[in-house]
Design a protein around this nucleic acid. Structure first.
Length: 514
DNA sequence: AGTGCAGTTGACTTT
DNA sequence: TAAAGTCAACTGCAC
């Protein structure tokens, strides 16, 4: 198996830190040099954070031991990608590199272009294979769903039985740097998820066997979502699990729970979310400027580009004076995760009530998410800010959301302990608590905006922008390029009526337009 | 028993 | 998986 005359294939691990269902590893063959590069410049970006790095480091430790078990440990380097790759290729006579297509932020996109041009100029071939439903150079959105589904149905890639140990000695970082060594701001995140493969497998197993039973009804409230949601997002973001592994495990679970209506609803709902995941990442793949420009350009000057520093800070710290908003923000800060609906509410509150530009709030949320996935993140940030031009304006009322999702107030009391003396009748709106509001204000701020006034201003401004000449023409072009085709295909009127009725009653159908 | 009425519910529209 | 408003149908109750 060991062939010392031919050079190995360099397998560049990026956001695919696993050995199972790993198309690039399978394609590389047994004589492989597995490499991960810690890029300090990436970890200095405004949308990356120490919690993401610590999670990544745990995933890397797992990957390193799995590869070692297969016979060839992971080589870990720290530095600039072109520099490290060219050194590894030059000193080992490597002419073939392989990795997965990555739909990342603007920085990783630019880095990949540098790597590609270096490779082309130096006689190194670099293959990039898909590892999820995202299609590179997709000509039109029309056939996407079919392509994605057929990818998910393909059998999982076998992980190799063994790798051929390299004959040459190649230096590797033994100890992974901590966040401080990467010059990252300290980031406690006391309840962060664990990045190891063992933790990922456990989350998948417990979700599909028990935790997910009430997924469909429990996902909306931050109280129940913590347990009932899959919690697979950070593992999918880093590729500790492949989305195909998860999708196929879901299918198997559907058979296992056959006949159970709750499980049936849960697993169907989960399948939709896995598909939406690829759908949004596809958008960033097709339109990288999604990260820094409004999808509909008429919104560019809607909000001041320089954000109000006091408002931004109050929002980031969970000190806005709106209990449910602050509880959600502090929970996110402490756990690195928040359920979808509450993420939408936080973003909506920042963009509409606080009138902050998404380019100042987006990176703050990105850093707090252990599961930061650029394609999902920037699509959602723009949707919840109303800047896509093609989605209906959804301005969440954080008091109503609080009543709906935390009616007993346990979530608020846990995460905003300053409020623990406030009776439940006033917990969601402590400014209405006549007896104690004055005393309370020494510990907890009055609302930094008038909710009704702020949302009315946002609503009127956004809707009047939409009525301006030319707005809808541009909006249609955006929809043609990006919108899901799920509800727009030609249908008989009976089917259309059925679909409309379903739309009203099934939250999945309305969950994430665009 | 039937009527009037306030209040609720649900479908639908507007912003 | 928005919220607020409109409208019509319905409900429960007093008389």
């Amino acid at each position: 198996m060991c062939n010392s005359s031919a050079p190995p294939v360099l397998l560049w691990f990026k956001r695919d830190l696993r050995v199972a269902d790993h198309p690039a590893l399978a394609a590389a063959g047994p004589y492989v040099l597995p490499v991960y590069i810690i890029e300090p410049e990436y970890w200095a970006l405004p949308d990356t954070s120490a919690r993401q790095w610590m999670f990544t480091a745990e995933a890397l430790q797992s990957l390193r031991s799995e590869l070692a078990r297969l016979g060839q440990p992971l080589i870990i380097r720290k530095g600039e990608a072109v520099h490290e790759l060219s050194r590894l290729c030059m000193t080992n006579g490597i002419t073939r590199m392989i990795s997965h297509e990555e739909t990342g932020n603007a920085w990783t996109f630019a880095r990949d272009k540098r790597v590609a041009s270096w490779a082309a100029a130096n006689g190194v071939s670099w293959e990039e294979l898909p590892q999820c439903g995202v299609v590179r150079r997709l000509p039109t959105r029309d056939a996407w769903q079919r392509l994605r589904n057929s990818f998910m149905r393909q059998p999982l890639q076998d992980s190799p039985a063994a790798l051929a140990p390299l004959t040459q000695e190649i230096s590797t970082l033994e100890r992974l740097p901590d966040a401080r060594a990467l010059s990252m701001a300290s980031d406690l995140c006391a309840h962060r998820q664990d990045g190891s493969h063992r933790a990922a497998a456990l989350a998948l197993e417990t979700f599909l066997s028990s935790r997910g039973a009430r997924y469909r009804v429990a996902m909306s409230s931050p109280v129940s979502a913590e347990r009932a949601c899959s919690r697979l997002s950070p593992y999918l973001a880093l590729g500790v699990l492949s989305v195909r592994q998860v999708e196929q495990a879901r299918r198997a679970a559907r058979l296992h729970h056959h006949g159970d209506a709750g499980w049936h609803a849960a697993l169907n709902s989960f399948a939709k979310r896995l598909a939406w995941r690829d759908h949004f990442i596809q958008k960033l793949e097709d339109e990288p400027s999604l990260e820094y420009r409004c999808l509909h350009p008429a919104h560019e000057k809607l909000r001041p580009r320089e954000s109000d520093a006091a408002r931004l800070r109050a929002w980031e710290l969970g000190e806005t004076g709106i209990p449910f908003v602050d509880a959600c923000m502090r929970y996110l800060q402490a756990t690195g995760w928040l359920n979808f609906r509450m993420r939408a509410m936080l973003m909506s509150f920042a963009s509409y009530h606080l009138w902050l530009d998404w380019r100042s709030t987006g990176p703050i949320l990105a850093r707090m998410f252990t599961d930061y996935e650029p394609g999902i993140h920037w699509s959602q940030v723009q949707m919840q800010s109303g800047t896509t031009g093609i989605n209906t304006i959804r301005i969440y009322n954080p008091v109503k959301q609080g009543h709906d999702q935390d009616s007993t107030g346990t979530f608020i009391r846990r995460w905003v302990p300053e409020l623990n003396t406030v009776p439940i009748a006033h917990l969601h709106t402590p400014w209405t608590w006549n007896d104690g509001a004055a005393r309370l204000q020494a510990r907890y701020p009055a609302p930094i905006v008038d909710l009704a006034q702020a949302s009315a201003y946002a609503r009127e401004t956004l809707w009047s922008l939409r009525k301006q000449a030319g707005f809808q023409t541009v909006a249609r072009a955006v929809a043609h390029k990006h919108a899901s085709r799920a509800h727009t295909s030609d249908r008989s009127s009976a089917q259309a009526t059925r679909a409309a009725r379903r739309k009203r009653t099934d939250p999945d159908q309305l969950a994430f337009d665009l």
